[in-house]
Design a protein around this nucleic acid. Structure first.
Lengths: 178, 178
DNA sequence: CGACCATACCTCGACGCCGAGGTATAGCGG
DNA sequence: CCGCTATACCTCGGCGTCGAGGTATGGTCG
C-alpha cells in the first residue's frame, strides 16, 4: 500500500521525502500514521528496484534534500499495479481508497472500468460478519446494539459505494457487467 | 487486531483452533483472510502470556484437538482492551469493527458509551484526503471521478456512522458529549 | 544568545504477518 | 483400496512495519 501511494504521488511530480510524508499522512494518516522508519526504507526499496532515483539538492533547507523522481520503470510499475491490482487492493478499504486516489493515472477508461467492476463484484458478494452455522445473520437479528451498528454501517457504506460505482461506470461509457 | 478477535470469540465460549479460524474468517475474512501461519503463533503468544489455556481433547476428530479456554487473566485483558482501546483501534475501520463486535462484553453502559464517544470524536475531526497547501479539498473540487468517489463514499460512511453513534448513545442513556 | 521547534534524513531491533510447506486422520466416491 | 477433500495442527524464512533513537541545520521568540 505504501509502495502504491509513493509511486502514485511521485507520478504527478517529483517530491522530496518530507513532502511525500505530508502527502501520505493527508491520504491515510488520520487512519494510520506512517512513520519515518517505514517510509525511508520503503523509498530505499523502490530505489534499489530501479523505480525511482534520488537527486541530491544541496540547497535551501537544513539537511541535503533528496528529490525523488520516478523512472520510466517506476511509471510503468504504477500503471501495471493499477491495471491489475492484487486481491487485497480490491477488498481492503484502506488499500482500495489508495488505489482510487491514483486510478486516473490509468489513462484508458476501459481499463479503469475493469478495475471498478472488480470492486463491484467484490461488494456484490454476499458476506456477513456473523453466522449461525451456515446462515448469515442480519442486523435485525442482534439484540447487541454494537453488532447491529457494525452491520448497519457496513451496509450503508456498501450501498453508497455501489451507487457511485454504477454512476461512474455509466459516466465512463462502460456497462456495469461485462 | 487478531489478539482482540481471539479473546473476543473465546470470551463467549471455548473453541478449538479450527472453529476459531472459521469465526475469524467470517468476521474479517472477506477483507483480509487470516492464515494458519498467523493464527497459530498468535494463539501460542496468548498462551505464553497466560491469557488462555489449551486442553487436549483426544477425541472425535482427526488430529487431537486443543480446546482453547480463556483464563481469568484473559477475560480481564479483553475487558481492559475494550475499555481503553489503542488509538488505532479507534481510527482504523477494520480494527474498530472488530472492537464493536465484542464491545457488549464490556458490561458497563457508561464504559461502552465512553468508547463510542472516542469514535465520535475521531469522526468529527475535520480530515480530508487531499490538500492544496493548507486548504482541504472537497469532493466537488475534483474533476477526477475517482477521487470524487473516494470522498463521497467516505462522507456517506461517516454520516451513517455518526447517525448510529448518536442514536446508540441516546439508547445507552448517555449524552454524545461529556 | 540560548531555547525550542520545524525541517530533513537515517538506522536499528523487535515483532507480527504471510505464504509455503509439512504431518496426520476421517470419510467419501469410484 | 486408491485418491480426494475436510479437519486439525504446526514450523519456518522472509519481509514489512513500528517505535525509539540519532544527526544536523534554519528560523523564531524572548
Amino acid at each position: 500500500m505504501l509502495k502504491l501511494a509513493i509511486l502514485g504521488f511521485l507520478y504527478d511530480r517529483p517530491l522530496h521525502g518530507y513532502e511525500l510524508r505530508r502527502h501520505l499522512s493527508a491520504l491515510t494518516g488520520h487512519v494510520r500514521p506512517i512513520s519515518d522508519g517505514t517510509l525511508y526504507p520503503a523509498i530505499k526499496r523502490l530505489e534499489t528496484a530501479g523505480l525511482l532515483v534520488r537527486e541530491t539538492e544541496p540547497g535551501t533547507a537544513a539537511a541535503p534534500r533528496h528529490t525523488l523522481h520516478l523512472t520510466e520503470a517506476g511509471r510503468t510499475a504504477l500503471r501495471d499495479r493499477l491495471r491489475e491490482p492484487e486481491p487485497l487492493d480490491i477488498s481492503d478499504e484502506n488499500r482500495w481508497f489508495t488505489l482510487l486516489a491514483f486510478l486516473r493515472h490509468l489513462a484508458d477508461p476501459a481499463a479503469q472500468a475493469a478495475v471498478l467492476r472488480r470492486r463491484l463484484a467484490f461488494l456484490a458478494e454476499p458476506a456477513s460478519f456473523f453466522y449461525e452455522g451456515e446462515r448469515p445473520l442480519g442486523a435485525e437479528e442482534f439484540a447487541d446494539p454494537f453488532r447491529r451498528g457494525l452491520l448497519l454501517v457496513a451496509r450503508a457504506t456498501s450501498e453508497a459505494e455501489l451507487g457511485w460505482l454504477h454512476a461512474t461506470l455509466a459516466e465512463l461509457g462502460e456497462p456495469a457487467a461485462e
